[in-house]
């Protein structure tokens, strides 16, 4: 029922005339956000949340 009440006039845009530049712009913004948030989460939130589990295999051997 979406368009039933729409009064916006439309122009037909075919396959070859359509370049989704707006989508590319939006999704690049998304990409940048993802990269920034990932780095923040891994290197600040995670690695900054010491102590962290490290090499469980090595120390057991190290009896004096």
């Amino acid at each position: 029922m979406g368009q039933a009440t729409d009064t916006v006039e439309r122009t037909e845009i075919g396959h070859d005339e359509f370049d989704p530049i707006g989508t590319l712009a939006l999704i690049m913004v998304y990409f940048a956000i993802l990269v920034a948030l990932w780095l923040f989460m891994y290197f600040v939130e995670f690695l900054g949340n010491d102590p962290t589990v490290t090499g469980a295999v090595v120390p057991v051997v190290g009896l004096i």
Partner: peptide
Amino acid sequence: ARQRGGEGYF
């Protein structure tokens, strides 16, 4: 949106 007359990057 373009068919409805939308323009620009955003």
